[in-house]
Design a protein around this nucleic acid. Structure first.
Lengths: 250, 250
DNA sequence: CAAAAATCAATCAAAAACATTCATTTACAA
DNA sequence: TTGTAAATGAATGTTTTTGATTGATTTTTG
């Protein structure tokens, strides 16, 4: 393949996709990494594109990713730990429901079981899921602007058509007496139904959510297995008396 | 083979392929490398082409890259023109369905009617819709990776719960005999149902789609109003005999 | 924070493509 | 036919391109 051809192909692919990985280009052109790197360097010199770690991007590009990055730096370590732990429960062939929310979003990179199918109400989850080539179904319904979660009657109707091996739900409060809670009743209904439709339900929450309760109840403690990252022994015993609980070690 | 002949052949091949390898020319002309090199040098001097390592390329490859950009920009402008025109049909209080696809996506910035509600199967439409603070419902269903459109039984089920004042559908073919068509049958079903559920349906397509047909039929011509950007008078009359059609002026 | 993995730049030798030269062939007019 | 100029193809040494390798750097992971 001619240099000229490669350059053209690279720019075309880039125009189409906004960002391209080096490996994709290696595949698309059947040439070596070295060659592609040289191409990218040259094209960058010619101001045709911008190199980024792992590939290349269009010159003038939005910084959506940046804002996502900024947003997620805070509790991310803890959430990722929980997410990674939770992802281990997913087995080959499982049909799982992934609740909207950052913790469940973090699970996706660790979903390495084969032949799984994912249903979710989180629009933000889509990109990551498709990136991993996981067949994905989205619930219908009303879009909640702030969280980009699908809620309402449409979401419940959609959900009723499925049943799951496992579901993974993010919550805002876990409380010995009040069970699992979240601030938005509409979201609570979706989470609640997802739990009912699953053979096994997992609730993901970092330690700041323990012994807290918020407005809308999702389910009773015993309806799900808790996955969290910290809990002193005294409380652990109290919770263990009521339901299964997994505490992820740091 | 005559020199003149060879030169003509080279230029023809080049015009067709944009880039041509020296070896290809050697084969095509049954002459030696040296000869072809001389030809290329000469033609370059005459500004008929540009030599590149390994062969030759069209002279204004750079400009042509631009023109690819221009072309896509032009296409976008046509699409935007159609989209802007279509957006005028949306009135205060309307419930509308926006089909997935780039043309309907372009409509969103022009949706300035008040109190409208939008239902869509295009995940990519979401951001723009929320940006404009338009209450939005998403269909459920399976996510088609390439287009990020929601399709399949889930989408149809979701769709059945609604009915619309107007729907705006992108198509790949408009044909006097075969009606509206699109390549993917799954998408066709969704589009078809949306049209059935709407009091008034609009089909958006630039002129390149006119008199074309693709695999899967969506609906008959008379089931929707066509909005396009170019059509000679003769054809216009033929179409007008069958359905309403709006031709957007440049 | 440290280890592991991925990505990167720099270097080098092999392969491909190059310009140049020269002997031979071809075209064509004398 | 013959002379001459243009065109051709082969041979030469040079330059460019390429893919592999190395160790450095960045990013991800635990």
């Amino acid at each position: 393949m001619l240099t000229e051809e490669r350059h053209r192909l690279i720019l075309d692919l880039l125009a189409e996709k906004k960002v391209v990985k080096l490996q994709e280009l290696v595949e698309a052109t059947s040439s070596s990494e070295s060659t592609i790197r040289r191409d990218l360097s040259q094209l960058e010199k010619e101001k045709k594109l911008r190199r980024v770690h792992g590939g290349a991007a269009l010159l003038h590009q939005k910084r959506e990713e940046l804002s996502v990055l900024e947003k997620s730096t805070k509790n991310i370590q803890e959430k990722r730990m929980i997410a990674q732990y939770a992802a281990r429960f997913v087995q080959n062939g499982d049909c799982i429901y992934l609740d909207a929310g950052t913790t469940t979003l973090e699970m996706i990179p660790y979903l390495n079981a084969k032949d799984i199918v994912v249903v979710t109400n989180g629009v933000t989850h889509l990109e990551a899921l498709l990136e991993k080539d996981i067949p994905t179904y989205l619930l219908g319904g009303f879009i909640k602007k702030k969280t980009k979660a699908l809620i309402g009657r449409g979401a419940l109707n959609s959900l009723e058509n499925y049943s799951f091996d496992k579901c993974f739900i993010g919550v805002n409060g876990i409380h010995l007496e009040y069970g699992y809670t979240t601030p938005d009743p509409e979201e609570a209904m979706v989470k609640s139904l997802a739990i009912k439709l699953s053979r096994q339900a997992y609730v993901l929450a970092d330690h700041s959510k323990m012994n807290e309760s918020t407005f809308a109840k999702i389910a009773d403690l015993q309806d799900a297995t808790i996955i969290t990252d910290e809990l002193d022994n005294e409380l652990l015993e109290l919770y263990e008396a009521k339901t299964a609980i997994e505490v992820v070690k740091k």
